[in-house]
């Protein structure tokens, strides 16, 4: 048939101008899916907390409204938001390839995160010292699990930033390093999202009723 076209070297079988394989996007999307699954873990702990947040499960021990400080929680909220802002601004410096700007933003983020963790862990230590530790009641077990789960994420984020500070110095802004910095940005911003849920539900709602 005259209209039939034989496949050959002169026939374009696919879009010749299609993008090349984008390693950075593939890695950030994969990491995004991990974050969504991580968010489901947090959701499971929050659901557990909601179930155990009543006098029966406090087993004679304290509930959140007896030991949580909304104002201290607000300070922690601004510390974690400030830390996220600092790291996010570091990635603005990344656009210009500014190593000093990226480094300063990351150091600022680390310092604010350490302050945040210091307040949170200090509160847990004081609670434990008063005899209201992890094993005191079902409610406190879940409260500690929720706070420590978030704190562990923050701790690993700090460790990751320290590693990236070294990698930037050694390798510069290579494709691998940039992909890791973008993943770390999502991971760090995710910590603020988790914390506002914890603050609103545990500190404000739980602390007020």
């Amino acid at each position: 048939m005259a209209s039939h076209t034989q496949a050959g070297a002169d026939v374009v079988l696919w879009n010749a101008s299609a993008d090349a394989h984008d390693n950075i996007s593939a890695r950030t999307y994969g990491f995004w899916l991990y974050l969504l699954s991580d968010a489901l873990i947090i959701a499971a702990v929050v659901a557990c907390y909601a179930v155990l947040d009543n006098p029966m499960n406090a087993a004679g021990g304290p509930l959140g409204n007896q030991f949580l400080s909304a104002s201290k929680g607000l300070v922690q909220t601004f510390l974690v938001l400030g830390s996220v802002l600092s790291y996010s601004l570091a990635t603005v410096a990344l656009k210009r390839g500014n190593k000093l700007g990226v480094g300063l933003g990351m150091v600022g983020a680390i310092l604010l995160a350490v302050l945040f963790l210091g307040i949170g862990m200090g509160d847990l230590a004081a609670l434990s010292a008063a005899g209201n530790g992890f094993a005191r009641s079902g409610y406190l077990s879940c409260f500690f699990t929720l706070i420590v789960t978030h704190a562990l994420h923050m701790g690993f984020g700090i460790l990751w930033m320290l590693v990236m500070l070294v990698q930037i110095g050694v390798f510069g802004f290579t494709e691998n390093v940039v992909a890791r910095l973008l993943n770390l940005r999502m991971f760090w911003q995710f910590q603020a999202s988790v914390w506002v849920v914890v603050y609103i539900y545990v500190y404000l709602f739980g602390g007020a009723h």
Partner: peptide, 24 residues
């Protein structure tokens, strides 16, 4: 050039400061 990637280019000071202020 990894720094030309759209996810690197998307960041801006205004957007992040607005995010901090609005969320805070």
């Amino acid at each position: 050039d990894p720094l030309a990637h759209p996810e690197v280019r998307q960041g801006s000071v205004l957007r992040y400061v607005l995010g901090f202020v609005a969320s805070g």
